[in-house]
């Protein structure tokens, strides 16, 4: 469990403000969903929380500790899953334990007994125990993403971040993978922040919702506050305007 505090977070890439004065707090153990259309700043916000990107100004504290770089108590699930195709599902899950394994031991694959069990337990959580020794390169997109989740779980995080975890999956796999993320978070009492662009999935899985538009936080509330009007405010009129102008809608 973790508390995230974000204060006046701004990230500029040249003249473009990807995040503009964003502030919010996520309490221990909440399952929060980050909404917004492509380019709204969702990925940038998650990368800042993870320490992969340095903010231009503002502050992020996780459990009171400022974020200065990647840390072992924050795990991330990526849209393109980024698992190592060369390794088995088990080998990939074990890379989550690198932060507590010395360089030499990780090089020769000499992991502690508890880490080995942790990797198998994580694979069991995502329903891949039977495929543990299969090379991830030969797995389906949904399975690879579940391996990515297992890796994040083995890291033993307090906070789980997910950047569009199901955006490149078909609708059925998307449901399954979101289900595994929710189960894993509930079983291990993790605070979770997942960005999604499918509103129906978001409503199905989220408790708490944050929404970004052009880098600004435009909504922060719970399921009952997420009305059709609010969704229109996040997506609707912009999309129709784009269609009117004949530009391509990326969603």
């Amino acid at each position: 469990m973790s508390t995230i505090e974000v204060r006046n977070l701004t990230k500029a890439f040249g003249d473009v403000r990807a995040l503009d004065d964003v502030s919010f707090t996520i309490e221990d153990g909440e399952f929060a969903v980050l909404l917004g259309q492509s380019g709204a700043g969702k990925s940038t916000l998650l990368r800042c929380l993870n320490g992969l990107t340095k903010p231009t100004s503002g502050e992020i504290r996780i459990d009171g500790e400022p974020v200065n770089g990647p840390r072992d108590d924050v795990a991330m699930i990526f849209q393109q899953h980024y698992v190592l195709g060369q390794l088995s599902a088990y080998g990939n899950a074990l890379t989550g334990a690198l932060n507590r394994t010395s360089f030499f031991r990780s090089l020769v694959g000499w992991h502690s007994e508890s880490d080995k069990y942790e990797a198998l337990r994580a694979l069991e959580t995502v329903g891949l125990l039977d495929q543990a020794s299969q090379r991830t390169r030969s797995m389906s997109g949904g399975q690879q993403q579940r391996v990515g989740i297992a890796r994040a779980l083995v890291q033993g995080p307090n906070l789980l971040l997910a950047d569009e975890p199901v955006a490149s999956l078909d609708p059925a796999s998307a449901e399954t993978v979101m289900g595994y993320i929710r189960t894993a978070a509930a079983e291990r009492d993790l605070s979770t922040l997942a960005s999604l662009h499918q509103v129906n999935l978001a409503r199905e899985f989220g408790e708490r919702f944050l929404a970004l538009r052009d880098g600004k936080l435009v909504f922060d509330g719970y399921r009952e506050d997420l009305t059709v009007d609010v969704i229109d405010r996040i997506y609707g009129d912009v999309q129709t305007a784009d269609i009117r102008e004949g530009t391509e809608v990326s969603a």
């Binding site: 992969l52 795990a75 980024y82 690198l98 394994t101 360089f103």
Partner: peptide, 21 residues
């Protein structure tokens, strides 16, 4: 690709582990 490198980096692995894995 950059993706898997960032993925390993985000697990809190050290620099040498990031290069190897």
């Amino acid at each position: 690709e950059d993706g898997p490198i960032e993925a390993i980096e985000s697990t809190g692995a050290n620099r040498r582990q990031t290069v190897v894995f």
